[in-house]
Structure formats: C-alpha cells, structure tokens
C-alpha cells in the first residue's frame, strides 16, 4: 500500500518535472490533477499548500513538491512515511531537469562560441532582461500595495503601505551607496524580515 503510494508519487512528480515549463507556479495544474486523482490531499488544501510554499524559503515549485509528497506519505503511514514521501516527490520533480540540463549543458559549452549561437543569444539576453524587469514590477506591486486593489488615483495613497515604501527607499539607497552595497543580499533579506516583524508590516 505504502509502496504503491510512493511509486505513484515518484511517477506523478517525475511527470510534473518533465512537462511543467517555466516558474514554480507552472506545477500547480499538475498538483490539481493529483488532488482529484489520489486521496493524498483535497483541492481545498491545495491553496494552503501554495500559500505556504510562497511564504517559506526555497523555490516555490520545490516547496510544493515537498509539501504534497509529505501530505501524501503522511496520510498513508504517519510521520516517517510523510518525510520519505516529501523526499521522493522532490527528487522525482528534479530528476527530469537534471537529466535534460546535463545533456544541454554539454551542448551549450561546446557551441557557445559558435557565431550563430552567439548571434541568437545577443538578442535573447536583452529579452530575458526585459522579462525579469516585468517580474520585478509584479514583485514591487506585491511588496508595496495593500490587499485591495482598485485603480483609482485618489484611493492610491490608502492602498500603498507607507511602511513598505519607506523600507523600499531605505533598502534601495543602502544597496547603492559605497560601504553598504557590498553587503550580501541575505543580510538585506534578514534585515527586512526583522523590520517587518518589528513594525508590523
């Protein structure tokens, strides 16, 4: 019974790793399918799992795999099976990536000085930069705006969290002046977390 659960977990998460392309949230449709197909977790629990995965350290997609695997194992055999389930799901999610990227990495190293490849990447690099800038905008929105969003300018001040704006400016300044900008990003992240706790952001 428990072995069957583990085999199903390994299969489902390998499939998820193989067919979800892009960021961590690309795995959500696969998890939804699992919620329907197996007794591991209900679709209701899924939204909780996503929220926790977004709020804890670690890439979202990886967090969700561990969480789902733990829940599945736990429901079948308690804590030890839960731990094992989390590990199996997470490794299965990573397996296709590892195989595919190891193959591609060799190809990339070999051909990266090829003029054709160089010409393609000449244009791909700014495109990726533009896309990451787009992600930055959504992150700024998430960081500075309070929950309710209505696009009315007079309402805007009420929507913006002033505490977050002050912290934003402070951090932006700190990261661009001489002695402080050499600090590790981890220090800024921890500092901001402490500020959040102290000032109830």
């Amino acid at each position: 019974m428990i072995l069957q659960t583990f085999a199903a977990l390994a299969y489902e998460f390998f499939k998820t790793g193989l067919f979800s392309i892009g960021g961590g949230l690309a795995t959500v449709p696969f998890l939804r399918e699992m919620a329907v197909k197996y007794p591991w977790f209900s679709p209701d629990m899924l939204s909780d799992m996503i929220a926790v995965s977004e709020s804890t350290p670690g890439p979202i997609g990886v967090n969700m795999a561990t969480y789902a695997g733990f829940t599945a194992g736990y429901s079948a055999g308690g804590l030890p099976m839960g731990i094992l389930g989390g590990v199996i799901a997470t490794l299965s999610l990573a397996a296709p990536s590892i195989i595919i990227i190891l193959l591609l990495s060799g190809v990339y190293q070999k051909f990266k000085s090829n003029p054709l490849v160089e010409n393609a990447f000449y244009a791909v690099r700014p495109a990726v930069t533009g896309m990451i800038a787009a992600v930055a905008v959504t992150l700024i929105e998430a960081a500075l705006l309070t929950d309710a969003f209505t696009p009315v300018i007079s309402e805007l001040m009420r929507l913006v969290s002033m505490k977050a704006v002050i912290l934003f400016i402070l951090l932006a300044a700190a990261m661009n002046i001489k002695p402080l900008k050499k600090l590790h990003p981890i220090i800024f992240i921890v500092f901001a977390g402490v500020c959040g706790a102290v000032f109830a952001m």
Binding site: I132, L139, A142, F168, M175
Partner: peptide
C-alpha cells in the same frame, strides 16, 4: 509570519531591481 513576509517582500523587490 505575515509581518516578516511583508518586510521580506520589499527586500526581494529591491534586490531584483538591482539585478535587472
């Protein structure tokens, strides 16, 4: 937890702007 995350989100946003 919510408050800590509120702070961290700000740091993540500023860090990604610097990265861009």
């Amino acid at each position: 937890v919510q408050h800590i995350l509120g702070g961290i989100r700000v740091a993540v946003a500023v860090l990604i702007i610097n990265s861009v």
